[in-house]
Design a protein around this nucleic acid. Structure first.
Lengths: 133, 133
DNA sequence: CTATATTCCTATCTGGATAGTAGGAATATA
DNA sequence: TATATTCCTACTATCCAGATAGGAATATAG
């Protein structure tokens, strides 16, 4: 229950690896190698992280990725949302009455609270914290 | 991300429904009807809840289910664990070194913290709270 | 003792999401 | 021109949650 996707785990490992490199830069292939992540799969993940502005990319020869911010300024919530989208325990979490039950949906408040709880935890954990264990 | 299984949602709805009935009892078929849950699927869920001791069952004609405790004494954590098992963000959450990374797994502490955060939220929400919205 | 209504058990099917693969286009360097 | 990279799109495979089916066990009523 509530298992974390491989996608998110890969993203965090790759980011940690990148953050702890001298110069804080590396190619996707290097990160895949270092963290035992399927290389082609990681490419797509890296693009997500770039789109979100957590890292910066350089194409072509001698290209690769580098940290766009200090690891202490990057939260786990940003990483998770970048690769897997927003936390959504139930479909109606951001739209009351979206489920088949309509307005008569008592549990909704509870699920919204769960989302907020998870979001808060992820937002207060930084990449620096996690990569240092 | 972090979506809640239909199984757990069904369990909570069925429990809420049962809790708010006069006499706090009903058959599986009645609950399925009232909450628009596939009847045969609900049967298995009800068995899980019975095994956990949250409700009591009576077989045969005039049989059915009844609350085993006060709804204020039943937590969401109990219901979730009864039907979907323990919260487990990552496989290594209760066994350090269980993953391919071995002991060199910095993120583990973070995932364990997430589990504890979710567990705590679920444990402080009672069936009474949720069924009343 | 038979008919009926229920929980309980086991096995099976299925669709959709997740994980991973493939091929190449765009881009940068030398 | 050759090479190394990110980036884009499409495809395939695998797995599991969700659901279904059939019937065994059990209790009640007439």
């Amino acid at each position: 229950m509530f298992s974390v996707s491989a996608r998110t785990q890969y993203a965090i490992r790759a980011m940690s690896c990148l953050a702890t490199r001298q110069d804080r830069s590396a190619t996707s292939a290097e990160l895949a190698q270092a963290e035992s992540i399927p290389p082609k799969y990681l490419e797509g993940i890296m693009s997500n992280l770039t789109a979100r502005g957590l890292i910066e990319s350089e194409r072509g020869k001698n290209g690769g990725y580098r940290m766009a911010k200090d690891p202490a300024a990057i939260t786990m919530l940003e990483i998770v949302e970048a690769v897997d989208g927003k936390i959504k325990p139930v479909t109606c979490v951001d739209a009351a009455g979206a489920c088949a039950l309509g307005g008569n949906c008592h549990p909704r408040k509870f699920w919204v609270g769960l989302k907020q709880t998870i979001d808060a935890y992820l937002a207060e954990s930084t990449l620096k914290d996690v990569s240092e264990g």
